[in-house]
Amino acid sequence: MATVEDRVKAVTGRTLNIDPGEIQAEHSFTFDLGAESVQSVELVAMFEEEFGIEMDEDAALSVETVGSACEFIARVCAEQGVAVDLE
């Protein structure tokens, strides 16, 4: 199974139309990857779909970078009993 980071990058790439290979953990969704505000909502929905979790929208939308999204999602997965590969 791919790691959380791989899956986050894949979803991000698909949603923003970017090659996942160009996405790095320290990238900000808006500043570095150019996500528009509606795309931020799409990203949240697509992460939920990818991982089968429910995220609080306020908390999720305030996540700034790809790396912190991975941490946030891993935490939510743990809370909601969803198994993921961290490494």
Partner: peptide, 14 residues
């Protein structure tokens, strides 16, 4: 505009 080639046909920069 990150990852956009252009905006209104003006070359965009990341």
């Amino acid at each position: 505009a990150p990852f956009k080639r252009s905006i209104y046909a003006v070359k965009a920069y990341r």
